[in-house]
Design a protein around this nucleic acid. Sequence first.
DNA 1: TATCGATATTCGAATGTATGAATATACAGA
DNA 2: TCTGTATATTCATACATTCGAATATCGATA
Lengths: 90, 90
Amino acid sequence: MTVKMDFDESAQMLKALAHPTRLHLLNLIREKHPCVRFMEESLGLAQPNISQHLSIMRQAGIVQAERDGNQVCYRIKNPRISRLLDILLD
Amino acid sequence: MTVKMDFDESAQMLKALAHPTRLHLLNLIREKHPCVRFMEESLGLAQPNISQHLSIMRQAGIVQAERDGNQVCYRIKNPRISRLLDILLD
DNA sequence: TATCGATATTCGAATGTATGAATATACAGA
DNA sequence: TCTGTATATTCATACATTCGAATATCGATA
């Protein structure tokens, strides 16, 4: 029962990671703690699209937003995620 | 370019992991090197459904099938996957 | 408070994924 | 070779995800 629960939670987290754009964003976020504008230029994608992906990762507890005046910057929220990214992207 | 490629590949691998049934199967597979019949009974799901999930993971290079007489047993193919599962499921 | 730049949300169409039901294939043993 | 057990594949339908376009919100500054 509890075990099954874990699979559900883990699967949901993985689903939120399982998109090339989101991995690309995470790779930026873990290195640079960037604001949305910066991510937009780095990836060359439309702002709403980036915001949508960030929203998915926020809801999944993967990243955390921090307002800095006019802008919003992101960081990795969960240390477990950092470890996963190390394995995935290095 | 190559970097973008990596995100694509990693995302595809994650997509193949991102399902509770598949995580449950992988948890069995990494511990017991089981055949399909065993997984079927352990999870209490229909055989075609299990086979479908195994097929997805085979195609993604996550698991490897080995025929043993009448049965087919599975094992984790990629050591990177083992490390991911350690982080995810422990 | 009006405006502007930055970010977020909503909606709809296209595409992708999950699952049950039916069926096919593979191998072992009679 | 026929039968039975184990596993894989196909198909159809329901459901979820993706992305662009349009629009809304938020905070800073004039």
